[in-house]
Design a protein around this nucleic acid. Structure first.
Lengths: 341, 341
DNA sequence: TTCGCGATTGCATCCGAATGCAAACGCCCA
DNA sequence: TGGGCGTTTGCATTCGGATGCAATCGCGAA
């Protein structure tokens, strides 16, 4: 409609300065909160800026201020049903603090090195990772003075800031309730062997069972629906006398297990109790009404962003851990006594 | 372990140049594919670079080359169950082409303007949007010469590149199969009124029913599980003579509807056939075995990225649309005749 | 040994905004 | 009317890498 070839409209602070009859520094100062600019001049400049459609070039700003406003968010498997919610919340909260999400969705854990190389290049201000980082990778991050917050990951012994949902408390609660209700023959479906979340949950459940003098059967899984089905089959095959309760390391596998049980004609929770962990959306659907522990995603993401922001502002802050208690969702996939107290 | 205070280790091309006894330009050229550098010198420089842990500063590169390597991905509701897969695939494919994902997860459609302001600031190379963009917003994007690809969104009349799954073909197929199997009394649950995907699907289904001389009952929904339940209730309340088939604008609502039907003692598909759209993971679970149309996410995301990459390389390319046929998943939530041919 | 030509290399400059510093300004009071 | 002081303002420089251009190098041919 207008010019034939819009000349790659890129308005710079110089353009605004010229149009407003001031220096480039004046324009720059207009966009800096506490800067010293005469109110009248500021108004005039801002008017011109608006008219020309000027906005400070974040790239140029980053170069000189050494603050990119970018936060690398590294997530291992977005298809997990649990992470999308986390990602959405993280995005929202980082946004609220003026930071952008540079997303890295891992295909395989081995991609981490490649991802980190990009992270270095983009001079991100910090990293939030829901992925497994090796000690060498943690060291590389620390060496560059990059603030890091791990989400639901532990790094044994390494001093790293992290936000986690309390697996031990959660599994302990589940096990105690199940045992109290009379379950004795337990099966556990774990997640991938290299998942710290899975290891933690399985260890916690196993330890608690031991306290009750019980030893569970184990089946390996991959955190997905199919693993839940396969896991149940495997456990039933192992269990001579049958199974009273199944503890899955996450909801998705618990759901898979419930379906496998039903397919075999087992009623849940009539013949078998099933519990999960996470509290994802489908867990609450009628078809499953899963007994599980819901992670407080809102509070956890808020904490992660807060921890990160603090450390970006003050890099010398020590790493801290925030441990959140999950919320017990009774559901109806496990046979429990009415009230524990 | 090493120095007390690592002096904010930021290695620049000058550092590498000094250490290798060459000029900064030489270092720069080493990292540019076709550049002219003597092999021996290149090796030496790369060795020094590796030793110092040098990587070109993407921010500085962007400033001078006017290519940030960033692609803004704007997604309206990540919690949709369908988008996480899309996002993961987009991320993977952009990555493969050397581009990074700057993620914008919308809270509300009204956030788009704020998002775009950030998009301008970061000088992204292009935009992939799975969100509703207003004509004024499309114009602003076009004015800046920013390549844009819409994902599963149409922009009536506007010349914008887009990738879509063929709603008309999909719904037509579903309706034809349902009608052929004897269904006559139809109900449709739509998505949000401002969703072009929903409008398209509902319009296509309605039009096809009209061709068969049928008029469906309608219930509004929000693309979520609860809407599916509510939608079914609403439709049953409207339908005096009962309902033969329910067409939901997406899988999530179809699942909600199935659960609501069962809760009322209706068998699916015995008493009521239910079909959805998308082909999300849970649709395939035993509990639902949803009859639906699966979007070819792999091919669609590949096309989106390809369209975008082409237009970044050659901005003058005309906008094009890629329409993909969905795959019919028979499932078992609808009573159908064995074979249509 | 010298010339010629293509391959290397370095110099200088540029991208766009932020900021220390000093000059210029305005205002109040004596 | 002049001096003093706190604001505004502009100048010049900086961030880190890319690149046009001219100088230099290397090597084979005469």
């Amino acid at each position: 409609m207008a010019a034939d070839r819009p000349p790659r409209t890129t308005v710079t602070s110089y353009d605004v300065a010229r149009a407003a009859g001031v220096s480039q520094s004046a324009v720059s100062r207009c966009f800096k909160p506490g800067a010293s600019v005469a109110p009248a001049k500021r108004d005039r400049i801002m008017a011109v800026a608006r008219e020309l459609g000027y906005a400070p070039n974040a790239i140029a700003q980053s170069l000189i201020t050494k603050r990119s406003g970018l936060v690398a968010v590294i997530i291992s498997n977005l298809t997990n049903l649990y992470y999308p919610e986390v990602l959405a919340e993280l995005s929202r909260r980082l946004d609220a603090r003026g930071m952008r999400v540079l997303l890295f969705a891992l295909q395989a854990e081995s991609d981490v090195d490649a991802v980190l190389a990009e992270v270095w290049r983009y001079r991100v201000d910090g990293i939030i990772a829901a992925a497994r980082l090796l000690p060498a990778q943690l060291a590389a991050i620390a060496e560059r003075g990059l603030p890091l917050v791990l989400y639901n990951r532990l790094s044994e012994g390494e001093p790293v800031a992290s936000v986690c949902c309390d697996s031990v408390a959660g599994e302990t609660l589940l096990i105690d309730r199940l045992v109290a209700a009379g379950h004795r023959r337990f099966g556990i479906i774990s997640g991938p062997a290299d998942s710290s979340v899975s290891n933690e949950r399985v260890a916690a459940a196993t330890a608690r069972l031991a306290l009750h003098g019980l030893v569970p059967l184990l089946a390996p899984g991959q955190f997905d629906h199919a693993s839940g089905r396969a896991g149940l089959e495997s456990l039933l095959a192992q269990a001579d006398g049958g199974l009273d309760a199944l503890v899955a390391a996450n909801d998705l596998m618990a759901i898979g297990a419930i379906e496998a049980a039903r397919a075999r004609g087992l009623a849940v929770p009539g013949d078998l109790s099933v519990v999960g962990f996470d509290g994802v959306g489908p867990a609450g659907w009628d078809s499953f009404r899963l007994t599980t522990i819901r992670q407080p995603v809102q509070r956890m993401t808020e904490a992660a962003v807060a921890l990160l922001a603090e450390r970006i502002a003050q890099p010398e802050l020590p790493p801290e851990r925030r441990l959140f208690a999950g919320e017990f969702l009774p559901g109806a996939s496990a046979r429990l006594d009415p009230c524990p107290e």
